[in-house]
Nucleic acid binder design. Structure first.
Lengths: 190, 190, 190, 190
DNA sequence: TATGAATGAGCCTTCATTCAT
DNA sequence: GATGAATGAAGGCTCATTCAT
């Protein structure tokens, strides 16, 4: 009996996600250029050629990987965007950030790889902006509501700081005192 | 008659620094793997082969570049390390950091490339640790003197935050409100 | 639909042996260093890159070529190794040696190239010893059975003499009186 | 006071022989292609460029090296070539051969490298023939005088055998029983 | 859909040789 | 005579991508 269309779709999606898992892992571990298509295929348990059945190119693959990660990340923060962050929502936002950081180490490695590699950054710059700007806007509004004079600078500063903490955590997750730092942030920024 | 020793030395120093300039620029602009030895040579106005007269390998070249940058950077912060940072010294430290950041954009791009590329990070990890640990120690002592409970976490947080600010500045120097953020940092952390 | 496993195996075996033929020919004709991978590929009618699909490196290629030749050669001399060479077996051994020499000129050129090139010798020294020692042992036993006083020296001498004859034949196969010399050897050594 | 012409000549000859020593040593140890002009210069304690003041090219250098060795070798065997080798002279010839072999290991390594490397052999083939033919002639005459039927085959065989013994000695001088073998040769061939 | 053989551009590196000084 | 900086061709090797099956 031939497979149903549904089954085909399931297989395709399974393969696709196997490839993406493999690629995410390897890119994060070894970097973009040092990871070959062959390695990704091997780790995914498929053949080299098949990857091109699911992705157009290596660049396409990393681009989709990053877009994907962004979407997952920002979806989590979909506050009922009625108006302005409350303090409670803000605290929740911070908690969530650290949660996501710890459970998606690979993706965050990729993210910083991207920020630091002009060649790769170009591929996702646009998307990154699309996502970050609303976030900065929300933060900025939060600070406005707190009566702060230069709310956008505050927002960008907050974002940068989070970046820095994530980066340091990623480079040395064993020793970076991430819990204490979360507390410090809460005390200082809420 | 051969050139005098002095002449040889001058030539070597000039060429070496031309190569390093060229390499720093290109690595920062395009990343490590995407910069070829050939491009470095062309930009330095010399032949490919000559680079190997001055550096053992491409890895050697970037390693030296980074060590160099580290040394330059940390030399600037040689406070009369008699004991503990005063508030004034701390403020000066922050000013200096931003000053150095703005005038060595290329190096700092390189620095974050390094942090984010496992393959390159390995080359300079040891040196990086050697330099960062004393810095963290000084910061930690500063926070101890302020009566803060968890000074090392504070120190690491401060370091991470600076990293994040630098990273954001580097990615988009035109629009990042670096001056305002410096003020925010001073207000919040001194 | 991918090729069957059988088809892949056939392709691989064919190509592999094409490459080895080409390499053997060229190494024997021009020497190891003077033969480029590109030349081997061209002569085999394939692309440079493909060679690395079959051999890890140029050194790997020559190593396998030599091991291969050794194995073929020594397999031919698998006398029913019950005990000691009879005179008849010894004569047969000599005949065989010359037969093999004449029909595998390329391999023997390679063999002497190896003996004379430290850099290549290192690659196959171990294997060479493994094969030669049993041969010398058999010869030594033969001479012992003949009541000769210093049988191992005799064995090594015999081996060396054969080497010399082969070497001279290889350098100038047209003019070297190999048949007459075979007779001389039989008269003198059996 | 400027150097006299004689002094200049002495310096030139000294340098030249330093270069040749260095080259002989390295070629014998590492092979022709694996020895760079730079290594030769370093070992000779001079600069790379100076070598080209004494030799036209790397090929020229090895050619001269080999011609030189040949000349030295064959000069030693200058028997008062009045007519035919006596048995005593033949024994002396054998002794001399082994003596020369043991005291000029480097040269003999070079010699076999040459025999085995077509690319290098071409450079010295002509000279080699010029020297070997008279030697073979003398040997041939010796065997003629002994009433042997096929004296030239005998002569070539003897030459080949000596080659083989030398080759084996060179590859493993520690363990090759060269003295015993000399005796075997004397017993068998005089 | 799936395979892996095949290509070829491009990379890092070496090195004989030249040449200004 | 002497130096070593400089060149550039050539080599080994990798790898994204294509394609016949």
């Amino acid at each position: 009996m031939p497979r149903t269309e549904r089954q085909f779709k399931d297989i395709r999606e399974l393969k696709r996600s196997q490839i993406m898992d493999s690629a995410l892992h390897l890119f994060a571990q070894k970097g973009f250029d040092s990871t070959s298509i062959n390695m990704i295929a091997k780790r995914a348990g498929i053949s080299k050629g098949l990857i091109y059945n699911y992705f157009e190119s290596k660049e396409d693959l990393i681009t989709i990987l990053i877009h994907n990660g962004f979407d997952k990340f920002f979806t989590e923060f979909d506050p009922n965007n009625d108006g302005v962050l409350t303090d409670l929502e803000f605290e929740h936002f911070i908690d969530k950030t650290f949660e996501v950081l710890k459970s998606n180490l690979h993706f965050w490695k990729l993210y910083f790889m991207v920020m630091a590699q002009p060649q790769v950054l170009k591929l996702v710059e646009k998307k990154l902006m699309e996502l970050i700007i609303p976030l900065l806007t929300i933060l900025s509004e939060y600070y406005t509501s707190k009566g702060i004079e230069n709310p956008m600078a505050y927002a960008r500063f907050f974002g940068a700081m989070i970046d820095g903490v994530c980066l340091n955590y990623i480079v040395d997750p064993e020793n970076f005192p991430v819990e204490e730092i979360k507390q410090i942030i809460k005390n200082k920024f809420i």
